[in-house]
Design a protein around this nucleic acid. Structure first.
Lengths: 199, 199, 199, 199
DNA sequence: GATGAATGAGTCTTCATTCAT
DNA sequence: GATGAATGAAGACTCATTCAT
């Protein structure tokens, strides 16, 4: 999106978009608020009419992105009844979302961990909600007698998120893009579905 | 280790130990070199007799820790012939190492990603070596006809590392320690072994 | 000029004036940027809105001062046709300018030489322009048959500048002011005019 | 002189020689004591067995050099009876001494002014002694009825020193060495002798 | 006397945030 | 609401000097 096109959007959105781009390029701590302001084509001070602080930009960026991701994940699995199909869809949507939004992927994978507020103080409800969808799929499959009941949902959700997260990170940072996102999705689904199916 | 005990160690080690603790507590960017110096019980300037810069402390901390981890992982699987046993051992050692060294775990999981040098410029040979052990176990199992040949080692190693990494992170950051490390190891092994076994 | 009066000037000028005073008092290397800021009644950071670095303040101070000096010297000799009168005027204006601006004199005489940039890397166009006026006066006199043609302008300009520079320095640093500026002017003119006149 | 040859000298001399070289290359404020120590092939701490401080090295360097210069100047004019010959000799010796000792010249011309102690606090007896020789030559000529009695010795000595100093400085810093030292000597003598002769 | 590892005071510069316009 | 000039706190790093060996 060109800076010109961006200017028709409301300032809140322009700042979030600019921050996403700058954070992805420089990392959170090495990004300057003035740089974000310049990219968003607003004055430095204007940022503070829409956000409380630099940290708040990152938190908002994360929450709004997660909202969008969660909504897309939910809508993708909404009409599926088979937990296995839900799992396959979840994995595919997660990896494709990040592929389609390179900046967001970099921010979430790499920079999100840089604000102390996030990892330690911030309660991170959105992330909990994301994980809840995952454990929900497992539990549903266990109740339906498809998935192994010995798998603990609280551990499974972390394991699968970690795998998807790492695959995304390495894909985003990789220059050669040796594997396609489709291939990655297939492989992750193969291992995790076989890993939890009752047989 | 008390500050007193620490003082018998050579200064390089004292500084690395102090940095590990401070980085874990405050995060890389929020840690002051003067704080590390104080914790190591040396003068600020002494740090620069042993390290080129603050970044260099983090890089050295990572490399020295990875060296130790890789050595322990290698020695743990060295005498095992069954790839499945190697996988189980690898998972157990990885998770237990981090449990036994809380500061190191926090630094590797959370803070390591904060130096631009690391994620983008730094080649990260140590990490490649770590991943190579993992893909090696998979390949060996595939050659022995135990593991599914369709699993791509380049994707598998990332997937398993991501899962272990996320389990470690959440375990380290978790206050309640709801699950034991042993339980986590068992679950990860269960899913990944079933996921890649030929049946 | 009191700090209060100074405050009506634009910040660039206030900083230059403050630097002139502080550099004169402490010397370039012993002057703190924060001290200049305090004297200029601006915040430390404000300095960096107007100058790239501490070195840049000194260079700007020099260039702006030389501009003023050169302009005054040029305008002083502009309407004179006799090279001898030009010489007398040049000497008088040079010495009086420094007398009227004690801080500037100290900075130019003593501190200017302290920035490596100046003496070795910096091309110093302004100073070349200053010297060019001097050699111009000699050449004009030689062409008019008044001055000795054997005197080399390239050496003469340095000789006279050196003499004026040293007289100024010792006058500025002298506590007793044993000789008046007028007396100094007269003596310098006497020696140099007799020294170069054809007779 | 090679570092090896230098090692046969006593440490005081080795340190002074090293400082002369380093100060000339980097300037006083940008020279590190450790660099001088390395060049002198002694330990950092050894410097402080022979000199009180970094400033003290510069002061000693200056005083010892001036002693040598003054002695050479005195001995050069000692057997001359004609004040005009003394003047010619003085000028020639001054300029040649600096030509033959490039490092010393740079230090005296450029770096000497960088220590506050020198220009403001330090009484600078050696320099006074140097100037005293100059005013002595003028006075002797005036008493003998050769030089113009209206020239004030206190101003004349500064004027001539300034001229010689500036000629040396520009000669030392000049890359092309457009004029020879002999040519410079001749020109300075020409102007100053004609300038003060009674006719 | 000689060493050089250790010290720690000192400062330029950055940049998130504010506020007068 | 919007601006952007101004603020000033904060910190990595340097290097003259010391002192235990």
């Amino acid at each position: 999106m060109s800076k010109k096109d961006n200017n028709v959007l409301d300032k809140h959105t322009r700042i979030i978009n600019a921050a996403e781009k700058i954070f992805a390029k420089r990392g959170f701590h090495n990004s300057k608020v003035s740089e974000i302001a310049k990219e968003a084509d607003v004055a430095d001070g204007t940022i503070y009419l829409y956000f409380k602080s630099k940290d708040d930009i990152l938190i908002s960026l994360f929450e709004e992105s997660m909202d969008e991701i969660i909504q897309k994940l939910k809508s993708a699995i909404k009409d599926l009844s088979d937990p296995l199909e839900k799992l396959k869809s979840f994995i595919g949507v997660h990896l494709n979302l990040l592929k389609d939004n390179r900046y967001l992927a970099e921010v979430i994978q790499v920079e999100l961990r840089q604000s102390n507020k996030f990892m330690k103080e911030y309660e991170n409800e959105k992330f909990q909600e994301y994980l809840y969808i995952l454990s929900g799929i497992l539990k549903e499959g266990q109740e339906k007698g498809i998935f192994d009941k010995e798998i603990l949902p609280g551990i499974f959700k972390r394991m699968l998120f970690g795998a998807l997260d790492e695959i995304s990170t390495s894909w985003v940072l990789s220059k050669t893009k040796k594997y396609s996102i489709e291939e990655c999705s297939k492989q992750v689904f193969k291992v995790f579905s076989k890993g939890i199916l009752l047989k």
